[in-house]
Amino acid sequence: MSSDGVSGTFTGRSILVTGGGSGIGLGIAQALVAEGAHVTICGRSADKLSTAAEKIAATGAFASGGSISTVAADVTDEADVARAVARAMETTGRLDGVVACAGGNETIAPITQLDADAWRRTVDLNVTGTMLTIKHGARALVAAGGGAIVAISSIAASNTHRWFGAYGVSKSGVDHLVQLAADELGASGVRVNGIRPGLTRTDLVAMITDGGPILDDYMACTPLARVGEVDDIAGLAKFLLGPESTWITGQVINVDGGQMLRRGPDFTSMLEQVYGADGLRGVVSE
C-alpha cells in the first residue's frame, strides 16, 4: 500500500476492518484511525458498532484527520460483504487496505461429541467469511492499483488446542487462504498476510486472563510469560498494511510471546467438569 511518505501514517487511506466492533478488530481500527486512516468497521450488530465508534472517538483519535464509519454486515453473506466494501470506499472513492478479523467458535467439545451444525457455522464464519472478505476487498484493491490485506488467524492454527473443534482447523484454512491469495494477487500489487494472535486480553477471554489454572498453564508455555494486549496485534497489523512491508506477502506471523515454540493450552480444569475425564479422551456413554 502506498503512503504519503511519512512512516507509520495512513493519512487519507481507506481501510475496512471486519469484526471491528470489539476486541482485536476494534483495537486495530482505533490504531489506524489514530494515524489518519478512514476506517470502516463492520459486524453483525449495529448497536455494538455504534458503541465501538464512540469508544474510538473518545480516545481523541480523530485529531490525526482519520475517521470511523460503521456498516452492519454478516461476513458469511456475500451481498453484505460487497456492501461493506462499497461503504468503505465512500469517503475517498477507493479502498487501500482490508483487515479480515471477523471470526469465532461454537465447538468447544471433545471431537467425539462435536455438533455438526456448529462445526459448519464455525467453518463458514472463519473460512468462508474470510474468503468473501478477501474476494470483494481484493476486487477494490486491484481496481485502485494495489493495497494490502491482513487476515487474523490464531495460534490454534499452528499449535493444537485440544477440544477446540473447528476453531483451529478453520484458522488453518485461513492461513492457507492467505498464501493462496498472496500468490494470485501479487501480480496486481496486492499483498496478503496473516497474524496468529496468542492469548490476547479481550472481554471474550476474561474468564482466562483474570487468573486461574488455565492462565497459569498459558504462562508456563509462553517464553515471554505475559498475556498479549490488543496493541501487540494492532502494531503488526499496521506494519503489514503500511509502507515498511511492501516486499512482504504470503506470511502468517505468530504474535504470541513465543508460545508456538511449546504447546497449546490445557483446558482440562474447565472442560473435565462438563465432559468428565473419560469424555475428554473420547468416551461417549450411550
Rank of each mutant, 00 (worst) to 15 (best):
S50W: 02
G12P: 01
P110Q: 08
E244N: 14
E54G: 14
F164H: 12
G228C: 13
E35D: 15
N159T: 05
T200K: 12
W247S: 13
T92C: 09
L224P: 00
V255W: 05
D216E: 14
A86T: 12
K55I: 02
R262I: 14
V252G: 01
V99D: 10
I15Q: 12
A100T: 14
E54W: 00
S14V: 06
Q259W: 00
V190L: 12
S7F: 14
R162Q: 14
V85K: 01
G5W: 04
A58E: 14
D175S: 10
P223H: 04
T51I: 12
A138K: 10
M260D: 12
H176S: 14
T9M: 11
A157C: 07
I214F: 07
G189V: 09
R87M: 08
D210I: 00
D124Y: 00
L114A: 11
S45L: 02
R263S: 08
D266S: 03
R196H: 11
E244A: 15
G21V: 11
G168W: 03
A82E: 13
V190T: 07
A144F: 03
E184Q: 14
T18Q: 01
E229V: 11
L271N: 09
Y218I: 13
G104C: 05
V39D: 05
A220L: 07
M219V: 08
V205Y: 06
D4G: 06
G8L: 00
L261T: 10
D231N: 12
E286V: 10
L240T: 08
E229N: 02
P223N: 06
L177G: 04
S45K: 12
I253K: 10
R13Y: 08
S22E: 14
A84G: 07
V81S: 02
I28E: 13
T209I: 04
L241T: 09
V81Q: 05
R262W: 06
A46Y: 00
G186L: 05
L32Y: 03
R13C: 10
Y218H: 15
P213K: 09
R13Q: 15
G104I: 01
D175R: 05
G60W: 10
N105P: 09
T70N: 03
T200E: 10
G66H: 01
D80F: 00
G228Y: 12
H38E: 07
W247Y: 15
V75K: 11
T122W: 07
D232E: 07
A52N: 07
V127R: 01
G211R: 13
V142Q: 14
A29L: 08
V85R: 02
